[in-house]
Design a protein around this nucleic acid. Structure first.
Lengths: 204, 204
DNA sequence: ACACTTCTTGAATAAGCTGTCAAGAAGTCC
DNA sequence: GGACTTCTTGACAGCTTATTCAAGAAGTGT
């Protein structure tokens, strides 16, 4: 089986990355092949030859996004104090909402548009959510042992809460003309992890 | 100006309500006039005569949903202990996700699909989010005065947090095969409002 | 009964969509 | 250079879409 023939004129990875941006911004259904052609410079025929169909390309793009998300998720575990890391996680959502409005999180966008009907996309989204949840849960466990956060917290539950909060911030930020109005939400979320001023046991 | 002529064969309110259900379930773009015709029994021509165009009908449906949401929001202020009310607010999200999967919240769905580009829809969604936020904030203030929740909470920030959490739960529940896995998130959110280390068994 | 008005109906329109295909272009391998 | 394979290109088919419109139906007021 000879492996010859005319080589691709485009780089698959580059195209998947570009498709990720378009699908991220516009969603699955609202993205037409004409739009992909204009943004990627690749004609529909070539896309079909390389990836199959629109849905398959979307899945590649979604998986790419999920990989990026997993990498970002691992940052909350990168040693040192945990609270600042979680503050960044939440703060980055608001910063992104201001810097590039109307994109949100591609995982949440996909969940809203296609789940639970699209089972394949559902597994990708669920996997990425689960990875973030796990990263947060382990970070919280560490923070508990170091006394950074309250001992009486259910780390698993709080990790799921924070994943949901991240998604929720992406949503409500779209309706908020000034994302800074949500800044104190981040503060409140972090404060709820620590022992409060009026709490029985106060450490630092 | 005589006000005669053949009367409508359908009830406007009933049609708006039906359109609300369809748009809620399928989103704006994915809902075709053929689908509306099948569900409502009203031909496109009549819809155009009565409402203008698809987008105008969508706005009517969205406003209806926002009205319903406002009414539901006022329930958190209906006297008595506040924590159980907030527990219902969050719990209802998960119950709805299980009973009717793939619908979520029409406000959040619309935010994700159309905001911030669609400014009119944006005002409707923003207004409904704001109303819920205000209702929660006032309920939290009352709960603070009665000693039901911590005194050191920023009620405004926590209200915004809870609005975001509601939206986030709608999103992540779509990716969760068993919504009950999110039950302890509700518990954790309520526990963070109260004093007390010790397991969050403080709900009466 | 009649004039008048508005609604319903079904077809038609024009645009856009995904996906396909034949023909030619551009490589690789011998 | 020639055989072979794969890619690119642009057109095209088959649908679906939102929207419009003319014709007839069904009311109201007198």
């Amino acid at each position: 089986m000879p492996r010859t023939g005319r080589p691709r004129s485009f780089d698959d990875d580059h195209v998947v990355n570009g498709a990720k941006d378009v699908f991220w911004r516009r969603g699955y259904a609202a993205t037409s092949l004409r739009e992909l052609k204009d943004e990627l410079g690749v004609l529909p025929g070539s896309l079909y030859g390389a990836f199959g169909d629109k849905h398959a390309l979307f899945l590649r793009a979604l998986e790419r996004y999920a990989d990026d998300s997993r990498e970002a998720a691992s940052a909350v575990q990168s040693g040192g104090p945990v609270l600042p890391r979680l503050g960044e996680l939440l703060g980055d959502v608001l910063a992104a909402a201001q810097a590039t409005p109307g994109r949100g999180c591609m995982l949440g966008n996909t969940a809203t548009e296609l789940l639970p009907l699209d089972e394949v996309a559902g597994r990708v989204v669920g996997g990425a959510f689960g990875a973030l949840e796990k990263a947060i849960e382990q970070a919280l466990s560490v923070a508990q042992r170091t006394g950074e956060i309250r001992e009486d917290l259910d780390c698993g539950a709080y990790a799921r809460l924070l994943v949901a909060l991240v998604q929720g911030l992406h949503v409500v930020a779209r309706a908020e003309s000034d994302p800074h109005r949500l800044d104190d939400v981040v503060h409140a979320a972090l404060a709820s992890l620590t022992y409060g001023p009026g709490s029985p046991e106060t450490t630092t």
